[in-house]
């Protein structure tokens, strides 16, 4: 099908985008990469009065390091994340997560900010942001605010953004030296995950880990940071006992639903399997020096 009629508006600045969103009083959608929005328009699952194209905005396609944080502009495309040496070095989890997204064409267009605002509960970008405790910058009529990733995702396709707010930047803690891994189960490569588990950790003395952070995707209405499991793993060597305890803690945090892709029971079965798998990969990457 083709999209229902709408007004196409090009925003040259963030302020213009906010003003346009205000003008359409919640009945406009922002267009970034369009890889999720345009299918919804084509299928007429969405019929906004206006589509505000953000692609001509300048200054939102940066990847910079400052003050212990890596700042990624909302319009940075997947293919840029995939090839950025800075991302590979400082946000290795993001680099590991990107290849799971879509296909080459999708990754050439899709953006980090677009994926986060779309807020698919199985989305890899949202999972990485929550796992790493990223901070999201929103600009709206009342100015700028920073929203922790954990508060940003409120449910399936639902974020904390107000109707006239635009996501402009995502700040990650500088993960230099960290090792990261993503394990996910999907029916086809590039399809939405049935269960996706992300982990990042910083090697400590000996075989120990200074910290480990685990995130769970596809197991609740929104991506979850597994706080208890992460706390259990800090300072351990990821030995089998610690891994099992973490897997159980993850399972206790999860609240999977049954949907067209898998039953809740199947998802519960997969969670500990994939937590163990992702932690094994973390250890292997550290040993192999592939981060």
């Amino acid at each position: 099908m083709k999209p229902a009629p709408f007004e196409y508006v090009t925003a040259e600045t963030t302020e213009a985008a906010v003003a346009a969103l205000e003008r359409f009083e919640g009945n406009a959608r922002c267009l970034a990469g369009g890889q999720s929005l345009v299918p919804l328009l084509n299928m007429r699952l969405l019929r906004p009065a206006a589509v505000i194209d953000l692609n001509r905005l300048s200054g939102l396609d940066h990847v910079t390091v400052d003050d212990g944080r890596v700042r990624v502009g909302a319009l940075v495309r997947y293919s840029t994340l995939e090839t950025s040496a800075l991302v590979a070095e400082r946000i290795p989890l993001l680099a590991r997560a990107v290849p799971f997204v879509g296909d080459r064409q999708i990754r050439n267009r899709g953006t980090l900010g677009g994926a986060l605002c779309h807020a698919d509960p199985a989305g890899e970008m949202a999972l990485a942001a929550v796992t790493l405790g990223a901070s999201l910058r929103a600009v709206g009529p009342d100015g700028v605010r920073e929203v922790p990733a954990d508060d940003f995702f409120q449910g399936p396709y639902t974020t904390a953004l107000a109707p006239a707010e635009v996501l402009t930047e995502v700040a990650f803690l500088d993960g230099r030296g960290a090792v990261a891994a993503v394990a996910e189960h999907a029916r086809r490569h590039g399809d939405f995950a049935i269960v996706a588990i992300a982990a990042a950790g910083l090697p400590g003395p000996g075989d120990s880990w200074r910290w480990v952070r685990i995130g769970l995707g596809g197991v609740a209405p929104r991506p979850l940071y597994a706080a208890r499991a992460s706390a259990l793993l800090a300072g351990t060597r990821l030995e089998p006992k610690a891994v099992r305890a973490a897997a159980e803690a993850c399972l206790a945090d999860a609240d999977p639903a049954s949907d067209i892709r898998a039953s809740a029971e199947y998802r519960r079965h997969l969670i500990p399997v994939f937590v163990e798998r992702v932690l094994a990969e973390l250890r292997e990457r550290r040993r192999g020096g592939t981060r």
């Binding site: 083709k2 369009g34 084509n42 296909d103 999708i106 050439n108 267009r109």
Partner: peptide, 27 residues
């Protein structure tokens, strides 16, 4: 498919492959 899955509409945009069913002409 008109939903970005099949790739039959793949074209090069400034040298990069994109699916032309997932872009609006004014873009």
């Amino acid at each position: 498919c008109e939903q970005g899955v099949c790739g039959a509409c793949t074209v090069l945009l400034d040298g990069q492959v994109v699916k032309s069913c997932l872009m609006l002409a004014p873009q």
